[in-house]
Design a protein around this nucleic acid. Sequence first.
DNA 1: CTGAAAGCGCTTACAG
DNA 2: CTGAAAGCGCTTACAG
Lengths: 341, 341
Amino acid sequence: MKPVTLKQIAETLGISITTVSKALKDYPDVSKKTKALVKDLAQTLNYKPNAFAVNLRTSESKTIGIIVPEIVHHFFSNVIKGIISQAEKKGYLVIILQSNESYELEKKQINLLLDKRVDGILISLANGTADFKHLTEVVSQDKPLVMFDKIAKIVKCSKVVIDDRKAAYSATQHLIDTGCKRIAHFRGPLLPQNSIDRFLGYKKALLDNGFPYDPSLVYICECGDMSFDEGKLNASKLLNDHDDVDGIFINTDMVAIGAITEFNKRGVRIPEDIAIVGFSNWFMSSAITPSLTTINQPGFEMGKKAFKQLYKELKAIKKNKSKAIKTITLETILVKRDSTK
Amino acid sequence: MKPVTLKQIAETLGISITTVSKALKDYPDVSKKTKALVKDLAQTLNYKPNAFAVNLRTSESKTIGIIVPEIVHHFFSNVIKGIISQAEKKGYLVIILQSNESYELEKKQINLLLDKRVDGILISLANGTADFKHLTEVVSQDKPLVMFDKIAKIVKCSKVVIDDRKAAYSATQHLIDTGCKRIAHFRGPLLPQNSIDRFLGYKKALLDNGFPYDPSLVYICECGDMSFDEGKLNASKLLNDHDDVDGIFINTDMVAIGAITEFNKRGVRIPEDIAIVGFSNWFMSSAITPSLTTINQPGFEMGKKAFKQLYKELKAIKKNKSKAIKTITLETILVKRDSTK
DNA sequence: CTGAAAGCGCTTACAG
DNA sequence: CTGAAAGCGCTTACAG
């Protein structure tokens, strides 16, 4: 049972394909009578335009692509949800790919999407990505590209981010304001900009408040699958190395929850002995004991904003206007809970 | 800068489009010399076939669609990851849609995917879905459809599932084997088959062991966004209603973790006072204190298997063979941890 | 070994 | 108000 085509409708009604096509699209130069006839028949035959033919004619697929480092991830899955919800409203479908934090895969996937001729691409970079040719390639094809969360400043495209440095600063400032004197930091990997920025925010807050910066108080986490265990491990190391630390700003909630678990086990009181601030506001952070003070990172909203920006550029290009590139910074707030005083 | 077409290559080399097309696809009836010439030029011009044209010609999009009730979900995001990983290997891209547990949305999304002419569809049903016309429609169009996890037995398509009843039985049996005498159940919503099956497995284990079945020991959770809080709430209700319960089989880990949190707070000792078995083996389940005994529900593997089955049917259809419909049941295992004796 | 031609199913500028 | 025709960029059966 093959799908119905315009041709079949035209033949059945004894009119031309042109008229059928125009009638269905409500062109003003088709008579009401013909329109009604055509629409009725289309309805009863359950006519659906062949998307492949429409794509070819219009050079549009009404499909966009997303690449994230990891799908099974509270933050990214929220961003994806935000993107899809918005895209659906505008009639766009969304192809999802996962780079696994690998530059090579990311590059391959950009090409896959380009080959499929998606209308636009949304991406959050892999930690391993230090070369950006695959991305400038997208831009030079005049295909809308929007980066979110993990971005590359050099690439000339729109971006949706939070101010990681400022957020980290306020997290650290909160520890200082509540009386912490010696504050450690569990940071993310060395490469991605946001883990660098969070570190810099931490450092700046210390210096601005007249605290010394002590590199031995900074611990690195890969923040991959083992985040929780890294939190436990670093908490344990910290207790061995520095018995005077009374506050920690931790790069991400999952690691913070690992640390809390370890401290609970060891009988370290939170926040009395050590106060903790996390980052991301994962839903489990309000569930654990003690509940975690953290920075709210608005994933769903970031996804929505990223799609909206992409959509604007899509429309601009369609009208042959040049697209206006923009960086949107979303607000973050400190959510105070029981892990700080 | 428009993409390069076959025509341009043909004109540049002074040969026909036909020959260029055949050369690139390594047809045996093109001379080696011509092939080399064509391939070289294609390479330097960075020729990529226009996917829209290829789709139209071949009536294939090399794209499949997935519909899940919820993307931000440990189990479903793992299934999605499994599907994408497998699809990518076979050259398929994956469009993702979320039904939000709504039948209406699910129906609309099936139509969206059909309109886009995806090559096949993978779906896990919304809790609200009780009418299956939108799904039999897919089957009757001879488009491959594979259901996973939340399925409808009536629909004639392939399915990938676990044996919920058996898994629930073994969870309950484990509570009995470790000495529990009065066992409660926190179940999921009334409609979806797997929450029914888990309940039935629980009930059967009780009866088989000569325990009475007491409906007042069964608590219902919606298992939506508020799962964690539902766990806390039901735990609290249970303590009020029945002080003699010494074991609970809980429909899903998130709810179980909520319950554990509540019991910890109230000073109820786990497993001494109340033993708990969850369902799904979420990664946080090994992290909390006490760690949760649970049924491992293999999401990633389920995604892989589901795509593999879809792929088989895709190939069968291409060869005009009729597709063989199949139900694949994955093994689940009981993961013993500290929440049971 | 090469190429002219038909066709996939639409859209739209143009003629009448 | 209606329709013939060109064209989007491929693939492939067929002729030479």
